[in-house]
Design a protein around this nucleic acid. Sequence first.
DNA 1: CAGGATGTCTAGCGTTGCTAGACTGGGGCC
DNA 2: GGCCCCAGTCTAGCAACGCTAGACATCCTG
Lengths: 191, 191
Amino acid sequence: MSAISERRERERAHRHQLIITAARELAETEGWEAVTTRRLAERVEYSQPVLYSHFAGKDAIVSAVALDGFGELADHLRRARQAAPEPEQALRAVCRAYLEFATGRPALYQAMFILPTDLKFASPETPAPLRACFDEFVSCFDPDGERRELSAEVIWSALHGMAVLSEGGRIPPGGQAERVDFLITRFAGVR
Amino acid sequence: MSAISERRERERAHRHQLIITAARELAETEGWEAVTTRRLAERVEYSQPVLYSHFAGKDAIVSAVALDGFGELADHLRRARQAAPEPEQALRAVCRAYLEFATGRPALYQAMFILPTDLKFASPETPAPLRACFDEFVSCFDPDGERRELSAEVIWSALHGMAVLSEGGRIPPGGQAERVDFLITRFAGVR
DNA sequence: CAGGATGTCTAGCGTTGCTAGACTGGGGCC
DNA sequence: GGCCCCAGTCTAGCAACGCTAGACATCCTG
């Protein structure tokens, strides 16, 4: 019962991750509308029902990709914040890193924030990577000051709005840096 | 050729609007995923191909609904702005009206800003209602001050971010008013 | 009154997410 | 060791999707 079933479990875990990365790659190269269960199954060289033995449905696969994305975003933001010498510059660095992430991996960003997912936000069972992302913004504000969470929410909203409106062509895609600078100067003074 | 074909044209225009309002009602009561060409056709009591004699495809129907929405949003914002006695209160009033609109008609807002549409933004052939919405924000800032457009873009982004993150449960849906106030105080001083 | 244009329909194509039922092969019990 | 059973995988198919071809009817024009 031991060795063989252990190997199977290992293989199963490996295949689980294989599905996630295949979905992500497919989405990043051809967009999420090209990610169908058939194409995904063909890509991982298994039949469709195998996908459903790993995930409850397509949404769950998207959620898994999104979760990976939140982990990477948290890393990305943390690195940017820690590389900044001063607190004010930290906020600016984190904001820029956020937009860089959003425009650099549009499909991943879409999975995290736009497509319907099963992920729980702002709740006790919120996955750790999601909290970590939010906390990176919170950390940019003065621990003594009140309303750090509020500041983080508003900043995050603004960045998300810029990212998605610009990606969809609702506002000119150029001039993102200018908008960030403008936003920061309004928020930095009251840190 | 006159009377009869005129009547037909009238009927055709009437049916055109009928399709749009049916799509909108269906979306507002059951969500956009319930708006299929079959159900829509059944609702307007015609067969599917009739829809395609009026619109290029489903996206075009969504776009038409969105365009109606932009007209209403522009009205809504203008009324809010004009009802405010002072410029600073005008910005606050417009922002609140915007979020009120977004949370009050979520399906309509989705058609305008999230679903894929054929509408052109920030371009010469941008429809008038879209420009009108943007201009309502611009009008809230000092005509002598520079960067009115930039301010409008950033404010709009922030509002959109709040609306969509809150609707999707990414940030707590309560406390929207607090966020708006917080945002305004950062932007009002430099009007 | 014939001919053509216009409008609407039925029927169907290809694709989607998802699932039931058959088949296979190794693990545990007598 | 031999039998049964369960986990895993597959083929095949369902209902619903957006969209369209081709047949039918209906009305204006010459």
